Computed example of a mutant assay.
Amino acid sequence: MADFQYEIVEELGVLSTSAKGWTKELNKVSWNGGAPKYDIRDWAPEHEKMGKGVTLNDEEFAALKELMSK
C-alpha cells in the first residue's frame, strides 16, 4: 500500500461511537498536502488508525446538505 499523509484541519463532529471506542466523524481533512475536504469515516480513539470513508469537495458537500434538507 502506498504511503500517504493526512491532517485533520477541523473536527466538525462525532456522528456515533462504537463499543470498541472508534468514532464515526465528520471532519475537514487535507490528504497528501491538498486542499481540505469534508470527510466522513471511522477513526480509532487517538486518530492513529482509520476505516474506509467518503470524501467530498465543497460543491459535493453543499449538494449533500441540500438533499438532506428536503
Rank of each mutant, 00 (worst) to 15 (best):
L64R: 07
K24M: 07
D3S: 15
D3E: 15
W31E: 04
G13Q: 04
E60W: 13
W31G: 03
R41Q: 08
V9H: 05
W43F: 04
I40S: 01
E25M: 04
L12S: 05
E66G: 12
G53M: 02
E48T: 12
E66L: 14
G21A: 08
K52G: 15
A35H: 10
I40C: 02
E48F: 01
I8V: 11
N27D: 09
L15M: 14
E60C: 13
E48W: 03
K37P: 06
E46M: 09
M1E: 15
E25W: 00
Y38R: 02
D39P: 01
K52Y: 12
L56W: 03
E25H: 01
E25Y: 00
L56A: 10
T55E: 06
G51D: 06
W22D: 04
E60H: 12
E48Q: 13
V54Y: 09
G51N: 11
Y6S: 11
E59H: 14
L15C: 08
H47D: 06
T17Y: 08
K37N: 13
A62H: 09
S16F: 06
Q5K: 11
L26K: 05
E7T: 14
G13V: 02
V9Y: 04
G34E: 09
M1A: 13
P45Y: 00
G13K: 01
T17M: 08
E60I: 11
E46F: 00
S30F: 02
I40W: 00
A19L: 09
E48S: 12
E7L: 11
R41D: 01
A63S: 14
M68P: 09
F61C: 09
G53R: 02
E48A: 12
P36A: 07
A62C: 08
I8Y: 01
M68F: 13
E7V: 12
G21L: 03
P36M: 02
V14H: 05
N57M: 13
